[in-house]
Amino acid sequence: MKMHSLRYALKQALKNIKRNGLMSLISVSTVTITLSILGILILLVSNLNFFATNLEQKLEISAFLAEGLSQSQQNQIEDQLLAFDNIQEVTFVSKEEALKNLEESMVDKKDLFDTIREDNPLPDSFEVHVNEVEGIPATANYIKDIEGVQEVYYGQDIVEQLLTLTKTLRKAGTVFMGLLLLATMFLISNTIKLTVFARRKEIEIMKLVGATNWFIRWPFMLEGIFIGSFGSLISIFIIFQIYRLILVKIYQSIPFIPFLTNNHLMLTISISIFFFGLTIGTLGSGFSLRKFLDV
């Protein structure tokens, strides 16, 4: 495309947006509203994911050792634990430490510990952190068979329920996000189709005076670029304002729930939404035109 035509297309695109004011406003609003909903959902799903990962990271296996093991036997058990693929890290907790921890978690029942302290019933143990939480039951089985390990505890029921819950949350979030993405694409491209349809006579006239298809297409696609990017920029602003408000509200009532606030994620979401709006605006108008160019 020559410079002259590009300048003309740019000028026409801006003029058309102004002259078809109402249609332009409807298109920008559609892009803004749909992308805002999509963006908020993406943040919600990302947070659910983050929440699930956070919970999973808290899962560990406790391997309680038999009474009276020597230091070398303990080392041997530790080596055997670390040899297993799914085990990431092990921490030795002596019976004294275990008692101290218990005492600290039950400050209000101090008297109870006066008697226990003389004859500590708690065993030495290893706290085992895993790589893959799904592998916890298999890892626990492996640990159970190690000589010198008396008992293994990982809260089977809770772990299994939690894993099912996080899996379901992730799946539902992804499906819902996919559906909303499709709906957004459909809504935006349909609105653009409507604006093009409203101007089909104009396109027909252009064809009849000898305009090539690309000559007609450029101003429309530039309009799509302007509308798509403008709409998505507003939606990015709305998304983060709403997110900030939600965070403030939730922190006030339940401050211990972890939320995603890292800039990297926000930037990724902003860039994705911007390019999604831009692409759908451009391609939407490009494709909608096809039908009317065949004159």
Partner: peptide, 19 residues
Amino acid sequence: PYFRRNIGVIFQDFRLIET
């Protein structure tokens, strides 16, 4: 398009672009 540039066409309903 190039063929049409050599022909001027006029219609009963004028077909002007209203905007």
